[in-house]
Amino acid sequence: MELAEILPEKAVIACSGIKSKRELLEVLAARAAELTGQDGDAIFEALNQREQLGSTGLGNGIAVPHGKFAGLGDVVAVFARLDHAVDFDALDDEPVDIAVMLLAPMGAGADHLKALAKVARVLRTESLVEDLRRTSDPAELHAILSRPLASTQAA
């Protein structure tokens, strides 16, 4: 599975003026609601519930908030690039400026985890993250994220 398959151009956003973790989750949930036609508040609730279990901040300014949601056909992703990093209670206490939200349908046990592992692996490619931090244009961000992993992964 490539990231591009679950991340259409409409799902990539560059946002400014976000001041808190809560606001970031709300923005992600709202975009996910637009993409799927589901209720944004309910999506936010699902993400928030997962955060209660422990922050999804991976460290190095990256977070992967995720959750399960009834009524989806497939895994849904939203990418957000923030102009100002916000505190996310991440493992290394670094504020977060790159977030990838993943929502999975209720029954999708393994798919959900595979997508999660994939996203986390893509985001540990340092050169890719550097490129993502260099631009705030959604189309460009999408292009960077759609690059095949083999050409970006050094190891």
């Binding site: 209660q52 422990g54 922050s55 029954g107 046990g109």
Partner: peptide, 17 residues
């Protein structure tokens, strides 16, 4: 990811099916 060890197992089970 990190988890809060004080949370109930059920929350984890629900979050990941």
């Amino acid at each position: 990811f990190s988890l809060d060890p004080a949370k109930p197992v059920s929350a984890l089970v629900d979050a990941y099916g």
